[in-house]
Design a binder for these strands. Sequence first.
DNA 1: GAGCATAATGCAACTTAGTTGCATTTGTCA
DNA 2: TGACAAATGCAACTAAGTTGCATTATGCTC
Lengths: 142, 142
Amino acid sequence: MNKLSEIVAKIKQAGFKQTKVRSALLKSLLQTRTPLSVPELELNLSNQGLKANKSTLYREITFLKEQGIIKEIQLGEDKKRFEIEGETHHHHLVCIKCEDILDYELERELDEEEQKITKNTHFKVLNHSLEFFGLCKTCQQV
Amino acid sequence: MNKLSEIVAKIKQAGFKQTKVRSALLKSLLQTRTPLSVPELELNLSNQGLKANKSTLYREITFLKEQGIIKEIQLGEDKKRFEIEGETHHHHLVCIKCEDILDYELERELDEEEQKITKNTHFKVLNHSLEFFGLCKTCQQV
DNA sequence: GAGCATAATGCAACTTAGTTGCATTTGTCA
DNA sequence: TGACAAATGCAACTAAGTTGCATTATGCTC
């Protein structure tokens, strides 16, 4: 009844297979507190003794995105990060010193602003990315 | 009295030189309507007959960032874009179809939200990135 | 205008993220 | 258990971005 088995069930229902790499990636992404990049995921699996080829990893990530299971985020780095697509919409607080990443739910989401944009410019907003950069509690003290 | 000469003056005042590449980059960035990537800038200069080495371009971009003359933005692509650092803070509306990029100033900026973040989590926000993705006026009609 | 210090440049070799075609292997279901 | 499609590995590739080092250009002073 855990999340992993639910996701795997969904994947099978859609006609796709359960594989070692797929399960291991999902496990990593379910356990982590911060979004992970492909190189990080590769290292994770490798530490568990599962050496997966990087083409496989990138193809798998593409697949999981297509299935709506994971979400891609960009934090101003040279690589992308991925996290499990949750029920609730959240943003990230990125510490520019220790590089830790925290989740944050806005008290007021941006729907109102998006409606204003459409009204003002006729641009139809489908989604947005909003990330905050600064210093986490710990790094402020030094 | 134009912007370019003001910027060049500022650079000279700081003890740096006026060079062909530097001027051409600034000209490109001042004239464009959308933020530009390094490969795009390279092409721009090349079209004007100025073949600059890419190390030079990347170093120059780094320099202009350090001087606070340009600003780096990430639009979920595999490369970064740059724009002249203006007086007013704005965001971008990115069309997912034609890839056009429009500037947009929020009616209400996010300062209030940032204060709430600090109150709620003790994370000190220094800046943020907010971009909207969707369909521009033209691309909605097709 | 010549000389000088240092900023700027070019070059080549490199790193890292990400992609692609193709042959082989593995998972699932009948 | 066999068949078929999905998944994988491999190797070769692209594209953005970086680095050390030798050379060149700029701007200042005399």
